[in-house]
Design a protein around this nucleic acid. Sequence first.
DNA 1: CATTTAGTTCGATGTACATCGAAGCATCAT
DNA 2: ATGATGCTTCGATGTACATCGAACTAAATG
Lengths: 228, 228
Amino acid sequence: MEIMEPDISTVAGLIADSARSKILTALMGGQALTATELSIEADVTPQTASSHLAKLLEGELLQVRKQGRHKYFQLKGPHVAAVLEQLLVLTALSTPKTSTGPKDPRLKHARVCYDHLAGELGVQLYDALVSANMLEDFGELTRLTEKGKTYFMSLGVDFQQFNKNSRPVCKSCLDWSERRNHIAGHLGSWILNYIFEQKWAKQDLDARSITFTSKGLKAFNSTFLIKQ
Amino acid sequence: MEIMEPDISTVAGLIADSARSKILTALMGGQALTATELSIEADVTPQTASSHLAKLLEGELLQVRKQGRHKYFQLKGPHVAAVLEQLLVLTALSTPKTSTGPKDPRLKHARVCYDHLAGELGVQLYDALVSANMLEDFGELTRLTEKGKTYFMSLGVDFQQFNKNSRPVCKSCLDWSERRNHIAGHLGSWILNYIFEQKWAKQDLDARSITFTSKGLKAFNSTFLIKQ
DNA sequence: CATTTAGTTCGATGTACATCGAAGCATCAT
DNA sequence: ATGATGCTTCGATGTACATCGAACTAAATG
């Protein structure tokens, strides 16, 4: 007669497999990927990937769009991304060597975290907005000030639109490589979109890291008041 | 040469097993439990539980305190609890029947979520504080107002102490049964502690649900301005 | 039409691991 | 001392499942 606690183990089991976890983290890049792309990413044959993708769909972690003979897969929603991000943080904390490790060029510098900017640049953006009094920082809590609100409205943000669904406007998100906050939520999503719209940067092939043009980086820095 | 993304799958694998997930959710109750208690909770023999507990320790999800011939296990920290909570939310979302289900007496009413109050009472507390202008609600974001700060200081909260480590003072946390916010973070932890200190309630045997005395419930309601 | 490409289904193989019984150490009680 | 309790290690058993080769469907291409 007791209320059953939801059974975590099945969902965790979906993430537990090495190939599937690679697929999921690849999809943290935010963009939809095809089955074969994901099979390459996961380093398994297409047949194996197909089986995994079926399971991830069944488990409601992914969604598909069919286009011609291609199938484009995506994370099902922000809640899924949140779980993955938390797991990344936890793993990064318990294995300090690999995480803050020395190597790596681009992924550490700037990458996409589901639908917003992460990496060094993401953290810099966060810090700049805080020191410009556009963002108030309370640990993991973050709030856009009036000044910040008017500023982003001048850039074209429609906050009316944001409030329509339940997603928070502005949410901080712990970065597993930097271990610092960066901006998630609606605003984070909008900013990343803006970056691509302005053609300041483009997403790399590996679907997670992004590269700024030199002009784009300058524009980004000046628009968001990041002091070099 | 690329930076390796942390391997989520190993941590997920620890949670993926049915017995281990039962152990972990049992420990979401916040209080330390012995190996045999956990073996009962997980519905396996002591030997099996022992093997699982060793793995969870190895994987840094748990910590132990040895006392005499007993071993008391606990979640290693808030980050672990955060992952579990996110997984609970995700699972609850994808299986709506079981989660918001009809049955259940106590667990739905008031329970402990790692170190703070959840369930109907937790949500009521949250709402009351918001409507009393002590808490500002921005979706998943929450902030204590000046009014709230002074109020809690009058109850004996030492905010100086809170700021010493990195944990956020006040953080909202999605409730998997109610699908509404409740208070986590330092303040959430303090409030739960206060409830036990005042002997308004005691934690049940199943380690997750808590029962208020009738006097305690009244005191709780009036202290935190919850209108019946 | 035939041919390539994307994705699937099926069956066989192998491996990882959860489980418990039995036996072994501690620690507490009497 | 002797016995009881809490927890662990070892070994044997069984099962679940990831993997790929081979063969199949569906869509684009020419």
